[in-house]
């Protein structure tokens, strides 16, 4: 006796596939919706717990070495700070005499790196500070040497996701310190990190420092980005491009500092 198969069970698998495709397309289409953001934050938050034991064991082995290193850095930084304080006072006095406005201040939120991911779509890392610690989306992130690390792109209650400066889609306004020219630092496949459209007569040599320009709401000025590595030949007789080596060692990042800018 032949058994009849209902059409629904016959098309069960294709129907399931269609539902999965439809759901995926809805998620892709509503990437910024609160529901997708909340579920993403929940996943990030839960994943952070996986790193707690690993981090704890790592800390046990490195704590003494880190302490001595920090002690040395602290003394050096303290001497440097004293020198800078004097210079700052002088600078502020002179700026006041010339009628300049005051600069925007900021606090820093220290954070431990939980994980770093280099996927084909985004180089990112997760840190153990979230909205309850005052981290806001689009806050700048620096390392212990005040070198640019990236910016916060997603925040959950206890964690935050940081897009790294070495990500292909990262852009930041920078200033080359010798010529004082400002440009956008971006990644290009052929040349790596490049500041494009720099005037041809700009006096730039390899080894010059590149710092953030401060022309954005995310990064204050004077955050160290890297060094000029190469200057490309003048294109069409009026501009040239500058190749930059990033200063931050992304493989050794353990702690970062999230900038909390004053409103």
């Amino acid at each position: 006796m032949a058994t009849s198969v209902s059409p629904l069970s016959r098309y069960k698998v294709p129907l399931n596939l269609l539902v999965a495709i439809a759901l995926s397309l809805v998620i892709i289409g509503s990437g910024d919706s609160p529901l997708v953001r909340q579920s993403r934050n929940l996943i990030l938050e839960s994943s952070a717990y996986l790193y707690v034991p690993i981090q704890w064991i790592e800390t046990l082995f490195t704590i003494e070495k880190d302490y001595h290193k920090l002690q040395q850095s602290y003394i050096k930084a303290q001497i440097e700070l004293n020198r800078h304080k004097t210079l700052l006072q002088e600078n502020l006095r002179l700026r006041k005499m010339l009628g300049f406005k005051g600069e925007q201040g900021f606090d820093v939120i220290p954070a431990n790196v939980l994980s770093d991911v280099g996927s084909y779509t985004m180089n990112s890392l997760t840190v153990d500070q979230g909205s309850k610690d005052g981290v806001k989306p689009l806050s700048g992130v620096i390392d212990a040497q005040a070198q640019l690390v990236g910016k916060v792109v997603a925040v959950s209650r206890n964690t935050a996701l940081v897009q790294l400066v070495n990500d292909k889609n990262f852009r930041v306004s920078v200033r080359e310190m010798r010529s004082r020219n400002v440009g956008i630092l971006s990644y290009t496949l052929k040349k790596g990190y490049v500041i494009q459209d720099v005037p041809k007569n700009a006096e730039v040599i390899a080894g010059d420092s590149v710092l953030t320009s401060g022309f954005s709401d995310i990064f204050p000025e004077h955050i160290f980005v890297g060094w000029v590595s190469e200057i490309s030949p003048v294109i069409e007789d009026y501009v040239k491009s500058i190749q930059v080596d990033l200063a931050t060692d992304f493989n050794r990042l353990e702690e970062v500092f999230i900038l909390d800018q004053d409103d």
Partner: peptide, 30 residues
């Protein structure tokens, strides 16, 4: 395989911070 692909895809998209959450879910379910 379809639903496992969908769920694992969504999870990896959320963890890696891609700007197109759901694309791996779509690809893995197919």
């Amino acid at each position: 395989a379809i639903w496992l692909g969908f769920i694992l895809g969504f999870l990896i998209d959320s963890l890696t911070g891609t700007h197109m959450v759901g694309i791996s879910a779509l690809a893995l379910s197919i």
